[in-house]
Computed example of a mutant assay.
Amino acid sequence: MALEYLTFYQGNLATGFDYIYAKKVENHAFYINAPASLDAAIMDITAESFDFSQENQRNILTDKDLRQFSSVWQNITFQWPNIERQLELITADWQPEYQQQSPGPVKEWGLTVKRDNEEKPYQIIGYNDYPENFSQFVQWLNSYAGGKLR
């Protein structure tokens, strides 16, 4: 049950949404941390053209959709097995949906995970409610933006 990709977003319509994409493609894996301030378009991680690597650098810089991410992607090929394990450990008890009515702006988040043995990706969504270890998950996932080996 190998991880193919994950996407994560959080935010709201007033402040915008932060997005994280991580994907394994053939012999490499990459990670993109696109904060709301980047004002980047939402991408389809399943698209074959959504591929970031040093070998693909020329295409990244010339493709108008990929270029917006040219400064925010990381090669995580060596970390991919650890990402698979950590993702499973952190989200093992998560329910498919977290919702709570509260006054003020809605704080929305979502996680999509696709494994090679599943026909469809698994989605977890939340509105103003979070799993107990949500902040740990966000901190772990954001830590890859620095490009540090784990």
Results as ranks from 00 to 15, higher is better:
Asp18Cys: 08
Pro35Lys: 09
Ile60Thr: 02
Pro35Arg: 06
Met43Pro: 02
Lys148His: 07
Pro96Ile: 11
Gly110Val: 00
Asn27Met: 10
Pro96Glu: 07
Ala2Arg: 13
Gln86Asp: 10
Gly126Val: 07
Phe50Met: 09
Leu149Ser: 13
Phe52Ile: 01
Val138Asn: 11
Tyr9Trp: 01
Asp39Lys: 15
Tyr31Cys: 10
Gln100Val: 03
Phe52Ser: 08
Lys148Gln: 10
Ser135Tyr: 00
Leu6Ala: 03
Gly146Tyr: 09
Ala36Leu: 00
Phe8Ile: 01
Lys114Phe: 11
Ile20Asp: 08
Pro96Gly: 07
Pro35Trp: 04
Leu13Cys: 09
Pro105Cys: 06
Tyr122Asn: 11
Ile83Thr: 03
Leu89Thr: 04
Asp18Asn: 06
Phe137Glu: 14
Asp116Ala: 00
Pro103Glu: 07
Ser37Asn: 06
Val138His: 03
Ile45Pro: 08
Ile42Gly: 04
Gln95Lys: 15
Ser53Glu: 09
Asn59Phe: 11
Asn27Thr: 08
Glu48Ile: 01
Ile124Thr: 08
Tyr130Met: 10
Asn75Ile: 04
Pro35Tyr: 02
Lys148Thr: 03
Tyr144Ala: 12
Trp94Tyr: 01
Pro96Ser: 09
Asp129Gly: 06
Asn142Ile: 02
Ala92Thr: 03
Phe134Ala: 07
Thr15Ala: 15
Asp39Ala: 03
Val113Phe: 04
Gly16Pro: 07
Ala36Tyr: 01
Phe134Tyr: 15
Ala22Thr: 05
Tyr130Cys: 04
Lys24Gly: 03
Ser135Asp: 14
Ala41Val: 02
Trp140Leu: 12
Arg58Val: 09
Asp51Thr: 04
Asn12Asp: 14
Phe78Glu: 15
Leu13Met: 11
Trp73Leu: 13
Leu13Trp: 11
Ala34Asn: 03
Trp109His: 01
Glu119Trp: 05
Asn82Arg: 14
Thr77Glu: 13
Glu119Ser: 12
Val25Met: 01
Val106Cys: 12
Ala92Ile: 07
Trp109Cys: 05
Thr112Phe: 00
Ala2Ser: 13
Arg85Leu: 15
Asn82Gln: 09
Val113Cys: 00
Leu6Ser: 05
Glu26Asn: 06
Asp65Lys: 14
Gly110Ser: 15
Gln99Glu: 13
Gln139Phe: 10
Lys120Gln: 13
Pro81Tyr: 01
Leu13Lys: 13
Lys23Thr: 00
Gly126Arg: 07
Gln86Glu: 11
Leu149Tyr: 08
Lys120Phe: 08
Ser49Lys: 05
Thr62Phe: 05
Gln68Gly: 04
Asn33Leu: 12
Ala92Asp: 02
Ala22Val: 03
